[in-house]
Design a protein around this nucleic acid. Sequence first.
DNA 1: GTACGGCCCTGTTAGC
DNA 2: TGCTAACAGGGCCGTA
Length: 273
Amino acid sequence: MPELPEVETVRRTLEQRVLGRTVIEAGAHWSPKFTPAVAATDATIVALGRRGKFLVFALNDGREMIVHLGMTGVISFGSPAADLDSPYLRAWWHLDETAHHPSEILLFNDVRRFGRIRVVAAGDYSSIPTLATAGPEPWDSELTASSFHRSIKGSSRAIKTQLLSQRPVAGVGNIYADEALWAAKINPSVRRLGLRRAGDLLVEIRSALEKGLANGGTTLKDYRNVDGAEGSNQRSLLAYGRAGLPCYRCETTLVSGVIDARTTVWCPLCQQR
DNA sequence: GTACGGCCCTGTTAGC
DNA sequence: TGCTAACAGGGCCGTA
């Protein structure tokens, strides 16, 4: 499931192949989640950014195409002859030929259709609630222990739920939330954190995301970068997916439960409430 | 406004 | 062997 490290890896491997290129034709699956992709036709991509887990294609006409990979979304390049009949193709953009690139098709495949695409006026995210209310990027200089603490203090929900809401900080999903909470020795169900513990958690969130990024993302099943390569961070996970196995710190058996409809793994000894 | 449950999706796996 | 049910989960929406 693509979280910040996966989406950023996609952005980095995609950027130089789309900058300055014009969409000469586009198509999409019938679902309204994907049909907005067609609206990018005739526009030129002038920048490729990322906000939380959203890819932001800046277009030359004052609009942005926002792409969320959902759980199983994969972006790749292909040819019209070979790749437009994939049963999981949800959107495609035919990019023009340039001095550096042949004419080719940018493909968006998404088995479970949890992804979504929107084309909006630049900066107008009113139709994308999670993007509109997303908190700061993890490495934003304005994000400090105290600002993070203030953000958490404003809610009475479990800390895991708060992280998944994208409000305290953008880009954290189920995997990196479990990893950061384990590293910070914080129980995922706690509803209140002091300033010092909030600071610890912020440090571990940044650390978990940096490690994921350095490893090219976490590939559990579907995730690939634009070149088709898997990430390797799944081999370095310390909590996620390890229920029933010994804690790497204290050897207590890790347990799992459901928080906010997400499987959550923690150490009952290191991460006591 | 905030909290919470249900829904969207389909391949994989477990259980009978 | 073949069928059914449970499971995975990010974001959105309706309701309280």
